[in-house]
Nucleic acid binder design. Sequence first.
RNA 1: UCCCCGAUAGCUCAAUUGGUAGAGCGAGCGGCUGUUAACCGCUAGGUUGUAGGUUCGAGCCCUACUCGGGGAGCCA
Length: 503
Amino acid sequence: MTNNNKTYISELKDYVGKEVTLSGWLYNSRSSGKIQFLIIRDGTGLCQCIVEKGSVSDELFDELRHLGQESSIRVSGTVRADERSVGGYELAVTDAEVIGAATDYPITPKSHGIDFLLKNRHLHLRSRRQWCIGKVRHTVIDAIRRFFNDKGFVLIDTPIFMSMAGEDEQTLFEVDYFGEPLHLTQTGQLHLESAAMSFGKVYCFGPTFRAEKSKTRRHLTEFWMVEPEVAFIDLDGLLELAENFVYFITEQALTNNRSELEYLGADIAALEKMKPPFYRLTYTEAVEILTGEKTQKFLSEQLEQLQRQKQQIESRIGELEKKQAGQRKQWQKDKIAAELIELRAELGETDARIENNPKHAKLAAGFQWGKDLGGSDETIISQMHDKPIFVTHYPKDAKAFYMKTDRGNEKVVLNFDLLAPAGFGEIIGGSVREDDYEKLLKRISGQGLDVENYSWYLDLRKYGSVPHGGFGLGVERTVAWLTSEKHIRQCIAFPRLMDKVYI
RNA sequence: UCCCCGAUAGCUCAAUUGGUAGAGCGAGCGGCUGUUAACCGCUAGGUUGUAGGUUCGAGCCCUACUCGGGGAGCCA
């Protein structure tokens, strides 16, 4: 089948007044006796197609009236601009051909639970929300490659089967490699360091696997991570690289996906403020903030606000319940019932936040210097800022063996996390790498790791060692942040969750 | 692994103190020439997650289990 006569919905603005043929799927339809509105999706967008009685044969008119959601179809007609239509253009249909009729499509235009949607992920991908997220993700990935390629970085594909651990042995997936135990990569960093000593600036980009038993909205067992690694760079240089990088990604998403971001309900005004420089805090400063009065005040104000919000929702529910009882028409009662369901869900979320608030306040107030920042601690700091925040100089003992110690204070390392604002939390983790042979050797053996396995890694410190470092950015977390999507499982086509793989 | 919540029609949810299981969407039929998750009328659709227990009577109370959601630890 040739593709020559086909027009895509995204191109309709160039065909106003002209006759075109669209190929796609029936997204939704409404009929009004002698006029039908078919919403067609073709992968590039949505288009409302108008079928008037008399402009097509009676047989076709009747066939279209009974066509099921997601049937595949080819429609021909004249393009015209109309503000009432999705996307601003519509098609006055003169002819149509049903390619594959569909009946009883499971995902209806009403709301569904997450379990049902994940079980139907192969179909859920067709929904508008998932489509918008997929488009944003595509832009993010394109921006990642473009940013590094334009800056002279060389792409290095690091292995997925790994013989050594980058971080923690316990969080690895083990595989049987012809009888030998290997594990799936959790970072390409160690290999990347060796490549950086050849090419200077390198990056790797691919799937990463973590066997962490984490059941939260921020975790997947398989996720995509990009990791740049640069020779001759210090911590300040890394921070600058990271903020320019994140800025470029947000700017590309705003340029290419504004309508998708709007549909998804992303905070576009906030994203437009993401210009560097970002905030910079040391770990010690972050701890002072967490344990300080300002945080307790911030949290108690937040709690008050949540309680006010709760009261508002409750009084609204009370009003609606009264209103519902007074209604005689069943459909009016049902409309109110639908609103009540939404309000009750909102109330549940608010309740959970009210319940968590004092726990988080207690955790923050009792935070001891030396521990790693917990999820709630990151959330608090993130909520207190309107731009991304770098947190640097973590305690050495809480961090991986390869991080370079601060020569002015050996208790901390030259690392950083980048927290996305408004409560989204960590999207980047990175560090300057230990470049001193003796210090690295001591840290490897000090962590009980087999030095033999790391001899090649130590070689990099033997033959022309240089200051170097890099970081890793999680793609799904970044997409979730940009789109205001709550759970990162929606930010990858086929998510792998702890204990659960649907298709 | 721990804590909290839930499971009722294909889907999303109601069901007052323990007293005859309902609605919307979706499906089918009909009506309507500008609809925006269209609207209006009619029809079909149920072993209330599983196994026990209390009771004259259990969707509702009790116990165990299964599955799911949210959160914690850990992390991108």
